[in-house]
């Protein structure tokens, strides 16, 4: 597992999935997403993986990320939160992301889902 953190996020890169936690009150913009994209490209190269977005903290996600910032080998996105508010936000994000998309209340469920693709 490879761990990376900077001023706006923390990410753990496993073989089949990455767990991303964005810090509180961050606006997750296209520019910030491209920093992560480089990390993901370097780690996974052309290998498929699932992104798990662990929404521990409230933050904004720019819709532009879904239009321009998603890697082809990112096969699915899991949103993890036990908050109804985060879930409502995720419902709005789902149509923007054209691939597999799931909601979970625990990280363990999301990890099991990610593993089921491989």
């Amino acid at each position: 597992m490879e761990h990376f953190s900077n001023e706006f996020c923390q990410i753990d890169l496993y073989d089949q999935y990455a767990i991303l936690t964005i810090n509180e009150n961050v606006e997750f913009s296209l520019g910030r997403a491209s920093i992560l994209r480089d990390k993901l490209k370097k780690h996974y190269e052309s290998k498929s993986f699932i992104m798990i977005s662990h929404r521990k903290f409230e933050h904004k996600v720019s819709p532009e990320i879904y239009k321009q910032g998603v890697l082809d080998n990112m096969k699915g996105l899991a949103i993890v939160s036990s908050s109804d508010k985060e879930r409502d936000k995720a419902i709005l994000e789902q149509p923007l992301y054209g691939k597999s998309f799931a909601f979970f209340s625990t990280l363990e469920e999301a990890k099991a889902w990610a593993k089921s693709f491989f």
Binding site: K75, I91, Q94, K99, S100, F101
Partner: peptide, 9 residues
């Protein structure tokens, strides 16, 4: 069902 559970491509 998509709202409740999500979807698979």
């Amino acid at each position: 069902l998509i709202e409740l559970f999500g979807t698979i491509e």
